[in-house]
């Protein structure tokens, strides 16, 4: 699972540069949580376009992730990118005052979609393309909010597993405290991804790598030394989240239908 880091940096910075231009933008915007993925993505964006072409939005909910906000500010200042802090508490609180719930996942999803909504608004105001920061691990197991943090203009990191993103972060010399802290989706205080998923990223990524990249069958992965229960759970997470990785199906009734047999490239004419 080791990767050729200079080649990856060259490929991904070129991707950001070219796709931004093709989409008709000359700058990018992204949500910066102070976590590993958005930090690495900010570093890549700065390498691709320079700090003045990158706008980072720091969008905390109350004091849910105070450490994250501090890290995000540090990254923005270190890289000299433009950044803004937008507190999402008023609109989130107003909504849940009307529709109360104790379900933290519902709250987390609502917050992710609120941040998405702000990103798209600022994308239009600032004429900046939205960079997505979902990694391959999250995309495969569906650990993200559909139309929330998964929404973006382009995603430079979606083919890198979480552990590879960390390797890339080390290569790009991101602040050490961000490199070593436990990843969190910031759903509730003290929440960690690994606690919620029930597996360490090291183990999860290895199993995904064997299943997806090496095309091994679940039984073969078990034979390679992984617990059957864990492998089965991962396969189930992949299967159940396919809807998050696809455009919704369109009922086909005509001879030529969007998504079925009306097929054009994304980069059409660019």
């Amino acid at each position: 699972m080791k990767i050729n880091l200079p080649l990856v940096v060259k490929t991904l910075t070129g991707f950001i540069r070219e796709e931004t231009r093709k989409a008709g933008f000359d700058r990018v915007i992204l949500g910066l949580s102070g976590g590993l993925d958005s930090t690495v993505c900010t570093y890549l964006a700065v390498r691709a376009l320079g700090p003045r072409k990158v706008l980072a939005l720091i969008m905390p909910y109350r004091d849910l992730d105070r450490e994250g906000v501090a890290h995000a500010r540090k990254v923005a200042r270190l890289l000299k990118v433009r950044f803004r802090e937008i507190d999402i508490s008023p609109q989130i609180d107003a909504y849940f005052a009307a529709f109360p719930t104790d379900n933290q996942v519902l709250k987390g999803n609502k917050m992710a979609r609120e941040r998405m909504s702000i990103l798209y608004d600022f994308s239009a105001r600032e004429k900046a393309l939205i960079l997505g920061t979902s990694n391959k691990t999250e995309l495969l197991i569906g650990y993200g909010t559909i139309h929330g943090d998964m929404a973006c203009g382009i995603n430079p990191m979606g083919d890198l597993y979480k552990t590879q993103v960390r390797e890339l972060g080390r290569h790009l010399k991101i602040p050490k405290e961000i490199l070593v802290k436990k990843p969190t989706a910031g759903l509730w205080p003290g929440q960690t991804d690994e606690g919620e998923i029930g597996l360490s990223y090291e183990e999860l990524d290895l199993i995904l790598y064997l299943l997806v990249d090496r095309r091994q069958k679940p039984d073969e992965v078990v034979a390679a030394g992984f617990e059957r229960k864990k492998v089965r759970r991962i396969v189930e997470m992949i299967t159940r989240s396919e809807f998050k990785r696809k455009m919704p199906p369109i009922a086909k009734i005509s001879g030529r239908t969007v998504g079925h047999d009306f097929l054009y490239p994304y980069d059409w004419g660019k």
């Binding site: 699972m1 080791k2 990767i3 050729n4 880091l5 080649l7 990856v8």
Partner: peptide
């Protein structure tokens, strides 16, 4: 297309 970056010592894909 270039594919496969898991050979750290190779200069290309």
């Amino acid at each position: 297309p270039g594919r496969g970056v898991d050979e750290p010592r190779s200069p290309g894909f």
